[in-house]
Design a protein around this nucleic acid. Structure first.
Lengths: 233, 233
DNA sequence: TACATTAGTGTAAAATACACACTAACATAC
DNA sequence: GTATGTTAGTGTGTATTTTACACTAATGTA
């Protein structure tokens, strides 16, 4: 079967920058999921997970589908990033790519390699391999967006499990923003927003004092947001 | 001539939200350029200027071309906004639209109607007519982005002439953000950034004290920005 | 039970944001 | 040329926010 149009059309791809974070690591790093391409072009090279838009789905749906196919995860945070359209970004033909970025908490998820017959692996953003196409640029834009956004919207919680400690939260921010926060000031600020609910549970098992567990109060945040409240860290 | 592909492809359109602002008006309003459609679908209705991506141009180029075709202007501020992909956003067939927004100072520009045989007109954002396709949604997203962005990046200057008075700048911010600023605090803040250069000229002609003219110091801003400086109003 | 390690807490100083009112200069009308 | 209406331009004190900073509490392991 083939499809014919009176004007030439670019192919429309969707590529995902899937950020992963594991609070259980001693010095956690922000990671990105890459897959090793099994077909040309760039066969054997690492690339961002992606594929072509199907006509019966929206871009959001296509991105969610790609994410599900690569990670097995559903209902994770994902948002559109930017649409890339350099003329030579794909050597085969004209392809524009609508990039998305997703935030995945790695506790919920362990790689089941070989999902799509393609090898998948997490790489620290500091040690990314060479990437196919213009994916290096896409990652750069995604990082800028994540770093810019996390300070003004409470999306960092998406990288942690439902219940987390204040230290885990602080380390997350320090990791992503590559700066340190004063412990007391950080906790005071977070506490004053009143957006965390103490679950009563404790994080135990480490040879030091146990830490209280909290949940992010999404309902309250959404209510406050409507009234013009702004989160800022 | 026709073009055939093994998989179906959406058409790729580019639509522009062209924001216009005229500091000479007594109570300036943020405006948007709309064109009256001369062809189906939505013939006769107002819509955002736009067209289809051509294969030899990038999305940025296509957006700049559309802007030029509609306004006659070149080298105005324009940036990609978002890509819209609802399945039914175009009744003819599957079309995804990459939206851009542009900032135009209306002093430089007066409408030369009938450019593309299409009627063009500026509408205040408060009194927009019904718009074709999902253009109402596109405008909504563009407004949110503009309001969010103008507070953290000095893009407001793009809506003013090269030389402007501090009152004009303040009125611009008040108009877009729909809030008022204290005159002295506003001027102090702006002044302390050291990003304005006094040109020596004065804005005369009104029956009251003349006002000093300033230029935005783009070079200095770019230099500071690299060192992590953040503009915020 | 000693030790190493992280959790958890308050206060004072500095910086920033905010509220507020008058004089100066211009064009116009008389 | 003088009075009038209107916007330009300026400083200070107060409240709020941000920052810097150090010790005790609790846990698991050796």
């Amino acid at each position: 079967m083939s499809y014919t149009y009176p004007q030439p059309r670019p192919a429309v791809a969707v590529d995902c920058v899937i950020f992963g974070y594991d609070h259980r690591q001693h010095m956690p790093e922000l990671q990105i999921l890459c897959i090793q391409r099994s077909i040309e072009p760039f066969r054997g090279q690492w690339a961002l997970p992606g594929g072509f838009l199907r006509l019966h789905e929206t871009l959001d749906q296509a991105a969610a589908r790609e994410l599900h196919e690569e990670t097995g995860l559903e209902s994770v945070y994902i948002e559109q990033l930017y649409t890339f359209s350099a003329l030579d970004r794909d050597p085969r033909e004209r392809v524009i790519s609508v990039a998305y970025f997703a935030l995945v908490n790695l506790e919920r998820y362990t790689l089941h390699a070989g999902t799509d017959a393609a090898q998948a692996a997490w790489f620290s953003v500091a040690k990314l391999p060479a990437l196919a196409f213009d994916h290096k640029m896409i990652v750069k834009v995604a990082l800028e967006r994540l770093r810019g956004k996390i300070r003004y919207q409470p999306i960092g919680f998406e990288l942690l499990p439902d219940e987390f400690t204040l230290s885990e939260l602080q380390t997350l921010y320090e990791t992503i923003l590559e700066r340190s926060f004063d412990k007391r000031n950080f906790r005071k600020k977070i506490h004053d927003y009143g957006l965390l609910i103490e679950t009563g549970g404790m994080r135990r098992g480490k040879p030091h004092r146990a830490a209280r567990l909290y949940r992010f109060d999404t309902k309250r945040y959404k209510a406050l947001e409507k009234r013009g409240f702004m989160f800022e860290l």
